[in-house]
Design a protein around this nucleic acid. Structure first.
Length: 233
DNA sequence: GACCAGGCACATC
DNA sequence: GATGTGCATGGT
């Protein structure tokens, strides 16, 4: 398992070019850490625009609080998250997450923030509806931990960037998440803010390429366009 | 009308 | 353990 020809320099080049092109992405959209966690669950296999509608519904009903969420009737919660799809499952996941927060941490997100990242990650992964990507999104964007989120965008953009030298397993294959995440974090050796921005900028790039928005002529990111990445992301 | 979008759990082999 | 399938809506 290796990436021939890769180097810390090339990854930092991507990061620097992305930052210069897009600026500070200010991720994740969310007014509170709890809202970020809710968004991480709601966005599973779902476009963010649909998640925004669901979060807006929840905000309108005062459900963006673990205690309020737990005391609300289930059908009210289901109705609120309807636009995000998978409403029955996601409503159950949100209840499960809120229950965990209230029972273990008294509903205080600040108490969760005191827990070592590896332990908190293990706890999150034990909950139904929280896989590696969702747990890492919470750790990085709600708890400001130095964790790089690996999602389909990250995988596909980097796959295209490295081209034939990309020898890590593809999304969905065994060990792919930890392998790719470990590879990138070893080389980037960044802090929480850098990992936060790196993943966010990759997503912005992928979305821009989807929309076929042209990059400036001297931008190092044109390498993505030259390899036809806009055709596949 | 088909396909996709910031996954995950569970059943089956 | 690996693979396939269900979950569900809104936008394109």
């Amino acid at each position: 398992m290796s990436l021939r020809g890769s180097s810390t320099g090339s990854l930092l080049t991507i990061y620097t070019a992305l930052y210069e092109h897009f600026g500070d992405p200010h991720w994740w959209p969310g007014e509170t850490p709890f809202e970020v966690c809710v968004g991480a669950i709601l966005t599973q296999n779902t476009a963010w625009s649909n998640v925004e509608m669901a979060i807006s519904n929840m905000k309108g009903k005062g459900l963006l609080d673990p205690f309020a969420l737990l005391s609300a009737p289930l059908d009210e919660l289901v109705t609120a998250v309807l636009p995000a799809g998978y409403h029955n499952r996601k409503a159950a996941y949100l209840r499960s997450f809120s229950s965990y927060m209230v029972e273990r941490y008294g509903g205080l997100i600040t108490s969760m923030g005191q827990v070592p990242a590896t332990r908190l990650r293990d706890e999150l992964l034990k909950m139904k509806g929280v896989g590696e990507e969702t747990a890492d999104s919470m750790l990085c964007y709600a708890f400001n931990r130095p964790v790089l989120v690996m999602d389909a965008y990250t995988h596909r953009v980097l796959e295209r960037y490295y081209g034939t030298s990309w020898h890590l397993p593809g999304p969905g294959t065994k060990g792919s998440y930890a392998a790719v995440q470990g590879h990138l974090m070893e080389r980037l050796r960044g802090d929480a803010l850098m990992y936060n921005r790196f993943h966010a900028l990759i997503v912005l790039l992928a979305k821009d390429l989807c929309r076929k928005r042209p990059l400036c002529s001297d931008c190092p990111l044109r390498r993505f366009c030259d390899t036809g990445v806009e055709q596949t992301i």
